[in-house]
Design a protein around this nucleic acid. Structure first.
Lengths: 168, 168
DNA sequence: TTGTATTTTCAATAATTACTGAAAGTATAA
DNA sequence: TTATACTTTCAGTAATTATTGAAAATACAA
């Protein structure tokens, strides 16, 4: 396979995967492009590589910065801004985990906690099932949340090493 | 909080969470409804509870069956089909993991394997970075995939017990 | 097998989400 | 401070994704 084709495939695959996980396809493509770039890229390079508008590029670069996946790089004697991606996959995984935890798990925990306060006839089957489901879910989410905390603290070698040993 | 309000909040929250993770909002809502239903529900009950059309209900129920999250229930002397959700959260997590692994991780592994075959000048910086990123990604995805296999085999108590012990 | 209840399909349409491009805003060098 | 190089914003538009509803298909009872 030629490099140009491989690059194209990589970017498309990463974009598709992103959209399957609720991440804007273009944002994932910009990320892919930066992941394989040996040097920081300018907005113009990203625009022409992915054939997207300045506005779109700008927006998605900002989002990627909010996810802590890329950084601005300033070159001396150059007014343009350049962008560089964190390349360590384990570190990327941790940053994504951190963000999703903050954006989704924590608000979910709050809602579930609240839902347990539901009032009504304790004999009602519907209420009973509701309470049970919400309770089980809360327990599960708590455990997942704690597991994520461990993952965030751990380094890759130790994490996978321990996991593999534990489950052998 | 009144039961009706709590139910509504639960369904909305589950739907929102689903859409943040790339799952059709309505499909997640149907799932939420069935998760708190003490008895199997008919298509008509789902339609009227969620205010959606027959076609929409049918489509999303089929998708949920493809994810192995719900089952058809046939009642004797009743032509209607009823639907019931798996209620065990750990089992739900395993089924979702199994599907996402099959639908997304395995195809991704194939693509990455393929991308490593890229040809070109070994001195080229761009190619070097590409090969390195793809290689690191492949290693990482392999490890995640193996971790998921362990999770699929394990039971909840053992899984979280071991995890918490391992990381204490 | 025929009539009826129910489910499925899918073209048309609606709703949502993403993108463009140009104008406004900002920072820098001279 | 002014000209210029660049970035940001956002209203309008495009693209994508989800939903409807009615016709076709299916399954069942008599």
């Amino acid at each position: 396979m030629e490099f140009e084709k491989a690059k194209e495939t990589f970017i498309q695959t990463w974009g598709k995967l992103g959209s399957e996980w609720g991440i804007n396809r273009t944002m994932a493509q910009v990320h892919a492009l930066l992941l394989i770039a040996p040097e920081p890229l300018s907005t113009d390079e990203i625009m022409s590589d992915l054939q997207i508008s300045r506005g779109n590029a700008n927006m998605n670069l900002r989002d990627l910065m909010n996810w802590n996946l890329i950084e601005k790089v300033i070159k001396p004697s150059d007014r343009k801004e350049y962008f560089e991606a964190e390349k360590d996959i384990w570190e990327i995984a941790r940053r994504i985990t951190r963000e999703r935890k903050r954006r989704e798990i924590e608000p979910l925990k709050d809602v579930l906690k609240d839902l347990k306060k539901v009032k009504g006839d304790k004999k009602d089957k519907a209420l009973k099932q509701f309470t049970e489901t919400v309770g089980n879910l809360e327990t599960f989410v708590d455990k997942m949340d704690k597991s994520m905390d461990f993952l965030l603290k751990a380094d890759e070698h130790w994490f996978f090493g321990t996991l593999v040993k534990a489950f052998k």
